[in-house]
Design a protein around this nucleic acid. Structure first.
Length: 567
RNA sequence: CGGGGAGUGGCGCAGCGGCAGCGCACCUGGUUUGGGACCAGGGGGUCGGGGGUUCAAAUCCCCCCUCCCCGACCA
């Protein structure tokens, strides 16, 4: 490809709306252009990178026997009604109405893939099977941002596995998990498969593939000593002992006017002759389950609550509907008697008296003791981990790593098969059984941004050669005006094409500085710099964009040199 | 959805009642060619949209739209 013909125009300055470095560099380098908020076009350079990501994914999926198919982006609303995700995923669904019929623009394809392949997987003889597709997905993001990292329209590769039983599903999951590792190894970024929360997809065992990056919106808990890695939504902390200094006194009720937050209560009590702290207060949070029953979660007052799956935080109307709830003064004492399920965080001491709400506006209780003053229905991990918490697997300490989610693999089990009538096959004995499923998604269009985010310098992008839009660019300084340079550059260019390199020739008749700046900005892995001063001696320079190292190579040996380099 | 900020040529910005400008990019000619070079000439904008005030509005007022940032559960 000739640079003079390539549809690209680099920018000296990034648009003012670009905040993330990947966004700035991809726009400046002429890879992508914004069409609307969270909606991006891929220009020729950008599409080349995207195609390389796709190629890696295809190769690794194909290698484990997954078969590519292609599902529609536009789904009839009925399949989303069957799983009720038309309601549970309402906040992210884009819906369209066409001539009186309702459709959903697919944010994910569990329903669609089952509807598509179930007839082909009618017998146990047809299982196991794994299919995948590379598709554009749509999500009504609350706030698109960071260029390609959080968009409303994006490209994703998603695989779906179908097994006859749980054991088969686990085997398949392991295979796909390994394929994911192979994909990320080839992409060349540091990544961590972390234990994660299933979210709206549902299911049991699942892993997120996280790439550490400063711009990341997610955090995962990580233990250096044992390698424990879990998303903040799923991470738990280890047991920590505590010292019992004195026996817990009698529970007492005290007046705490206008103190509806932990901080206000602690401040009020401390300034009125009591001893109080956030750690020895219990934060109370009201949640509801799917049946509408109320649950009370209790955690130490200095910690953030992590709501267990299956529960949702109560809304104002839920409070209004239950006369036992006094906002700001909720506590566990007596709650069991009014039918509220009590959950207590594992770290709440059974020999420590806590300060809690008295379930009466303006009053709190002191020295509230678990087991004596109230009974826990569930003891569970209810707090979000923070850096410095003990590791749940070893003696180490948890740290939090800021990162971006690049992929997510799930053992779905029967989550969808139980909801969708057609998701069944005939077993050996003739009886019908639901599929054990898995799903595996990777954010194809997010990968270029992710790589750009972690691989760049002050001059521009630095592509690993597996993703580079071209493997090598011939930067001909003086092309079109200096015959020696022009001839040498042409010779090298055609030679590299013969050697089957993916090569770009910068044949533009413009100032040398512009070409060198553009080459660095665009970030192609290898640059062959052809200039008057080297060509006179029969030499050019081959520069590694990543290390910045330049090697003088004879014009006739550039092909051979690069073959060795890329081998 | 709540709070803040911003919309002037493809990009970055100035102008803030009196003829719509600058840098980059683009076009023509010339000089250049190892780090976004220079000279001369040129094209391109309903100043986000609508309404109002005024002799006169990019500029002041009102409404709407778009874009960016922060937040969106702990009672």
């Amino acid at each position: 490809m000739l640079m003079s013909k390539l549809v690209v125009k680099t920018l000296r300055e990034a648009p003012s709306d670009a905040e993330a470095i990947s966004h700035q560099l991809l726009v400046r380098g002429g890879y992508i252009r914004r069409l609307a908020s969270g909606i991006y076009s891929f220009l020729p350079l950008g599409l080349r990178v995207l195609r390389k990501v796709e190629a890696i994914v295809r190769e690794e999926f194909d290698a484990v026997g997954a078969q590519e198919l292609f599902l529609p982006a536009l789904h009839p609303v009925e399949i989303w009604q069957e799983t009720n995700r038309i309601n549970t995923m309402d906040d992210v669904l884009m819906k369209v109405e066409v001539r009186g019929s309702d459709f959903v623009l697919g944010p994910t394809h569990e329903e669609a893939v089952i509807a598509t392949v179930a007839p082909d997987l009618a017998s146990y003889r047809d299982l196991p099977a794994t299919v995948y597709q590379i598709q554009t997905k749509f999500r009504a993001e609350a706030r698109p941002r960071f260029g390609l990292l959080r968009t409303r329209e994006f490209i994703m590769a998603d695989a779906y596995s179908f097994d006859a039983d749980k054991e088969g599903m686990r085997t398949t999951y392991k295979t796909l998990f390994d394929a994911y590792c192979a994909i990320f190894d080839r992409i060349g970024v540091e990544y961590f498969p972390v234990e994660a929360d299933a979210g709206s997809i549902g299911g049991d065992v699942n892993h997120e593939f996280m790439v550490p990056a400063a711009i990341g919106e997610d955090h995962f808990a990580y233990c250096k000593s044992c390698g424990y890695a879990a998303n903040i939504e799923a991470a738990v902390r280890g047991e920590r002992g505590y010292e019992v200094t004195e026996a817990v006194k009698e529970m007492t009720k005290v007046e705490t006017p206008n103190s509806s937050t932990i901080k206000a209560v602690v401040d009020y009590l401390n300034s009125h002759g009591y001893v109080a702290s956030a750690e020895t207060s219990l934060k109370a949070m009201i949640c509801l389950d799917n049946s509408g029953a109320y649950h009370l979660l209790l955690v130490p007052g200095d910690r953030k609550v992590r709501i267990p799956s299956g529960l949702r935080a109560a809304e104002t109307t839920d409070f209004d509907a239950n006369p036992n709830l006094h906002l700001g003064y909720i506590g566990p004492v007596g709650m069991g008697d009014v039918g509220i399920t009590i959950w207590v965080d594992r770290s709440v001491g059974e020999e420590i008296g806590y300060c809690t709400g008295a379930n009466e506006a303006g009053y709190h209780l002191l020295n509230v003791l678990l087991g004596r003053d109230y009974i826990a229905d569930h003891i569970a991990d209810l707090v979000e981990v923070v850096a410095g918490d003990p590791c749940p697997r070893c003696e180490g300490e948890i740290e939090l790593v800021r990162s971006v989610e690049a992929g997510h693999t799930f053992q779905l089990g029967l989550t969808y098969s139980n909801k969708i009538k057609s998701a069944r096959f005939s077993g050996e004995d003739g009886s019908e059984a639901p599929y054990y499923m898995g799903c595996y998604g990777i954010g194809i269009s997010r990968i270029p941004a992710l790589v750009a985010e972690v691989s760049h310098d002050g001059n521009g992008l630095i592509w690993p050669v597996e993703l580079s839009p071209f493997e090598v660019v011939v930067v001909a300084l003086g092309y079109g005006s200096n015959d020696l340079v022009t001839d040498a550059a042409d010779r090298i260019y055609y030679n590299l094409i013969d050697e089957e390199f993916d090569v770009l020739l910068d044949d533009r008749n413009i100032a040398a500085g512009v070409k060198l700046k553009d080459a660095d900005l665009i970030g192609i892995s290898y640059q062959v710099v052809v200039g008057a001063r080297g060509v006179a001696d029969g030499n050019v320079e081959v520069k590694d964009r990543s290390s910045g190292e330049a090697t003088v190579v004879a014009i006739d040996q550039v092909g051979e040199y690069l073959i060795n380099l890329l081998a």
